[in-house]
């Protein structure tokens, strides 16, 4: 459970990375794909996922496509042009962050 707090700050980057790999995704699909990749370690709740998606949409990073699937509507999210650039920036930032954390957590390993 405590692990979830560590992931919280990286939620938007996780979403962007997933959308970079998959042309378009819907909310539930994102939660399931994340669970699958992390072997159930990261469980994104609806309360965290949708505000994050809506924020990215409001910023112009994501765009929405609403389609009818059988007897209901589905909202797909995909990266905008600006979003693709933003994803590259955020992933670079994340790599830097992980490198720094590595220096802090395991200094011996990072010197090698």
């Amino acid at each position: 459970m405590e692990n979830q707090k560590l992931y919280k700050g990286s939620l938007q980057t996780i979403i962007l990375k997933l959308l970079e790999e998959n042309d378009k995704m819907y909310g539930y699909e994102i939660t399931q794909r994340t669970k699958e990749i992390t072997n159930g370690e990261l469980n994104i709740t609806e309360g965290a996922l949708y505000p994050a998606l809506h924020k990215l949409e409001a910023e112009g990073t994501l765009e929405v496509e609403v389609v009818s699937i059988g007897n209901r509507m589905r909202k797909y999210y995909k990266l905008t042009e600006q979003g693709t650039k933003e994803t590259a920036n955020r992933l670079a930032e994340m790599k830097e962050f992980l490198k720094t954390m590595q220096h802090i957590v395991n200094p011996k390993l990072s010197l090698e």
Partner: peptide
């Protein structure tokens, strides 16, 4: 509502 309905319906269907 449409987004929440789809979320819960997808979960139930899986």
């Amino acid at each position: 509502r449409i987004e929440l309905v789809d979320h819960i319906a997808s979960k139930l269907e899986k």
